[in-house]
């Protein structure tokens, strides 16, 4: 299943938010989306999820235009974990994950044991099975993020879109979430802030002012000239003597 953006653009009140973006998500690939604040990462994810229709160009799923597919059909294939999705409702973790089955249910196809099995599997996959009956409000930030991912998994999607899933988490939970995403084996687009974390992706796409300025393997994209131009930082590459992996240190350009 391939998700493609063909020369898409979006304008709001005459301001261009995204312009001329071409992108293909390969099967089972993890594509990292990086760029400074306000560069259009969240907007691009919403367009890829079919929540917002582009003003120009189109997003296709296996060659079919997203804006011509019923929303329910999209939701069976693409799951989005947005930022700041919160609730004040008294709701259990399992009930929250059950919401992921919404696109598969209707009046003629009510809740079944198969749906319950999907929910159980999704909870187990993110290691939250033991917290299923807990109240949502009692979860920590990391647990909530994992529960959101479980809800997305319950949709049984082939494509997962994640908007800065490590935001506001402590470092251990950040790593847990990233490990989890890496292990899922789904085609994934993940917006990230931390460039060192971004290096774990298969490919990286760099957004600046709504324009895709670079796309490719991390070591090609995270070059000194691109980092200087897009993020305004000077990067020094360090090698971790522990396992030989590359790390970057950043300093603002004077």
């Amino acid at each position: 299943m391939t998700l493609q953006a063909h020369d898409i653009g979006l304008r709001v009140r005459r301001r261009s938010l995204l312009d001329g973006i071409d992108l293909t998500l390969a099967p089972a690939e993890i594509l990292g989306l990086i760029g400074p604040n306000g560069s259009g990462k969240s907007t691009l994810l919403r367009l890829l999820a079919g929540l917002v229709r582009p003003d120009s160009g189109q997003v296709t799923l296996d060659g079919r235009r997203l804006d011509q597919m019923p929303r329910r059909q999209i939701a069976r294939r693409i799951a989005l974990v947005a930022q700041n999705a919160e609730t004040a409702d008294r709701i259990t973790v399992r009930d929250a994950v059950r919401l992921g089955r919404t696109p598969w249910l209707d009046a003629l196809r009510p809740w079944s044991d198969a749906d319950e099995a999907h929910v159980a599997r999704a909870l187990a996959r993110v290691d939250l099975a033991h917290l299923g009956d807990r109240d949502w409000s009692t979860l920590s930030g990391g647990e909530r993020q994992r529960a959101h991912i479980a809800r997305a998994l319950a949709q049984n999607p082939q494509i997962l879109l994640l908007d800065e899933p490590t935001n506001h988490l402590d470092i251990r939970h950040q790593l847990e979430v990233l490990d989890l995403v890496a292990d899922l084996g789904l085609s994934t687009v993940i917006a990230l802030h931390d460039l060192n974390q971004a290096m774990r992706c298969d490919r990286l796409a760099v957004l600046q002012h709504g324009v895709l300025t670079a796309i490719g393997p991390p070591e090609e994209v995270l070059r000194a000239d691109i980092l200087a131009r897009v993020f305004g930082v000077q990067a020094t590459v360090l090698i971790d003597s522990h396992d030989g992996s590359r790390l970057m240190r950043f300093q603002p350009i004077g």
Partner: peptide, 21 residues
């Protein structure tokens, strides 16, 4: 009822769950 449930985490979340908001 299911669509209403889907609004638990907001309008955008409902839309991403396949609800024609």
């Amino acid at each position: 009822v299911r669509a209403l449930d889907a609004f638990t985490f907001g309008t955008q979340s409902a839309a991403s769950l396949g609800v024609p908001v």
